[in-house]
Design a binder for these strands. Structure first.
Lengths: 339, 339
DNA sequence: TCTAGTCTGGAAACCGCTTTCTAGATCCCT
DNA sequence: AGGGATCTAGAAAGCGGTTTCCAGACTAGA
């Protein structure tokens, strides 16, 4: 807790009250601009506060008022650009309302995630849970005790929990349709982590391409990181596909790097697409075609949901954002395969 | 604040005390594993707590004990990969000690920064200030009232404030020396933002290259973001330099993108170097040569400094980390300029 | 058996603020 | 001028824990 610079005890409301010759209640009123206090007294109090360099203890305030003006966010990995953007959106939106944000990083560990969520929630007024990795049954159990909570990038197994989803299917369909237009007949899908909700959604979409003209899909196990994409190069080439649809931008950039090193022309020999629309996709060489998810907006929307609960307002509807296809230089007409 | 799921009042220590037929003091002792409490009573208390699904209020606890088990970090921009890494390092290190992290994003605004720092500090036990943008006089005034505080990526104008610095000079010298080795005689320096401490440090190093053989430096005003590097392409080419030394990796990646689009060979026609060693540098095409700053480690070290103050331990020494030169494909022998 | 010493657990003060309740002062209208 | 309505500011009761202090029980030694 804050002490004065000189190691003295913290200046409390009582000191100010004494200095101004009024009661603590009055100081509190003045500090909160509450009720009508005699202007002269108000002046005296403000002066005393200024003089003593008083600033009220947020902790005591929180205890007395029963709210902390703080919300928590739990993410699986602070190192992931996606979550960073969500955090940024949330943080800035919350700041505008005078709220602060507590972060917790579960390091992709589902057990840790449960503990952190509980723990973080207890310190705060509300919680944002981003892409929780825990399984559905556990999540369903946990959510009620965490309320108010909003879920980002995952469906809620129970009712009454606002959630913000991404329409991965739509993103994938947009990508495939563009590749199809360019004449690609055989696509490699670089799959994400096995348990991942997002990966499942993408696979579902790929397996349900209705069009009879739809390209053939070859699944290549991969992962979610740079390194995974980088290492997948040979497996991708071995499929004979003319385009690689990657689980996300990180994987795509990794693949791009490996292809570049191997001197393989993109998109001449093979087209590459990502997913997420991270900042870096635009500046890759060649610039990466991707389905862009407005992650920052997701953070802002998460705040909006929390705020409406915190202020007893009408709860905003659930939102499913549709990724926007960003066509860039990493895709081109299908290369003729010499069978 | 947490309520029970059913909208009832929060379960407090008093409820548990009553249920177990003991005093609140005893419950507190049991919950904290304190002193010697009769095992039978301990069992009863734990059972009651379990039964009622009791969890102590962190806020009340903080008020009573005078510490929040929370530290704050103020960064200029949560969107910047450098700060993200620092945050991540701090967060994970703090978590190991049971501490949580509050984040605040000043949006590069020095005035906002001051307010945020004060505000964040009051809610927490300590503060990390990363790359503060405020000017030195203001910083000097502010620091004492923020203590315990540690400064990352900036020197303290006052004594007694632990700070973690990056030896930008050494990084720049390593880069230049490598370029010199490759025969470059004329380098363009894509400068960072004007007020930036980091930019000043880099410039100082560039202007004090002792070696008589040192290459000539041409300064190109630029900035700190992708876009800045992207836009600087023509200005860089106009200098006739055979290598571009960029303020940071973002700028370098932007420049790389623009050069790639223009069909200009890197490093054949011009070499490009970055600074910072962000994750993406490795996977750019061509992979970016950079002076890598272990930002995550900086976050961890910041925690170590805070912790030693919080636990009254011997304060750790200030640390200056030296960037490690990562030589990658974006640099090569100097291209012969036809004067 | 009596007394000094040790333990256990409860009562109560405390952390620093908010907010209800209330007494007294002020105001207004008849 | 009198009496109710209105307003101001203080006293005190929380908020939910921790911790000091102390009384009573129990142990042990002479």
């Amino acid at each position: 807790m804050a002490r004065t610079a000189h190691g003295g005890r913290r200046i409390t409301i009582a000191h100010v009250a004494e200095a101004a010759g009024v009661s603590r209640a009055t100081v509190s009123r003045v500090m909160n601009g509450l009720a009508t206090v005699d202007p002269e007294i108000g002046r005296r109090v403000r002066e005393a506060a200024e003089q003593l360099n008083y600033s009220p203890s947020t902790v005591a305030r929180s205890l007395a008022m029963g709210r902390t003006q703080t919300v928590a966010i739990v993410v699986p990995d602070l190192g992931n650009p996606m979550f960073q953007d969500t955090l940024r959106g949330l943080s800035r939106a919350a700041a505008r309302a005078g709220y602060r944000v507590l972060v917790a990083d579960s390091a992709e560990n589902p057990d840790e995630e449960i503990i952190l969520a509980r723990e973080a929630r207890r310190r705060c007024d509300a919680l944002v849970l981003v892409s929780p990795r825990m399984d559905s049954a556990v999540l369903g159990q946990l959510l009620p005790e965490l309320a108010p909570v909003v879920l980002v990038n995952r469906e809620s197994p129970v009712d009454g929990v606002p959630s913000l989803a991404v329409d991965y299917g739509a993103g994938i369909r947009a990508i495939v349709s563009e590749l199809q237009r360019l004449g690609h007949r055989r696509l490699a899908y670089l799959a994400g982590p096995d348990g991942s909700y997002g990966n499942r959604a993408r696979l579902d979409a790929l397996h349900h391409l209705l069009d009879a003209e739809s390209p053939e899909i070859v699944e290549v196990p991969c992962g979610a990181m740079f390194e995974d994409g980088y290492r997948a190069k040979d497996a991708v080439l071995a499929t004979g596909a003319t385009a690689a649809v990657c689980f996300n931008d990180l994987v795509a950039l990794g693949l791009l790097g490996a292809l570049h090193e191997a001197g393989i022309d993109v998109p001449g020999r093979i087209s590459v697409t990502g997913f997420d629309g991270i900042q870096f996709a635009r500046f890759a060489s060649p610039a990466l075609t991707t389905a862009s998810v407005p992650q920052t907006q997701l953070g802002e929307e998460a705040w909006a949901r929390l705020w409406s609960v915190l202020s007893d307002a009408e709860p905003a509807d659930d939102l499913t954002v549709t990724p926007r296809l960003e066509i860039r230089a990493s895709v081109g007409p299908a290369h003729q395969v010499h069978a």
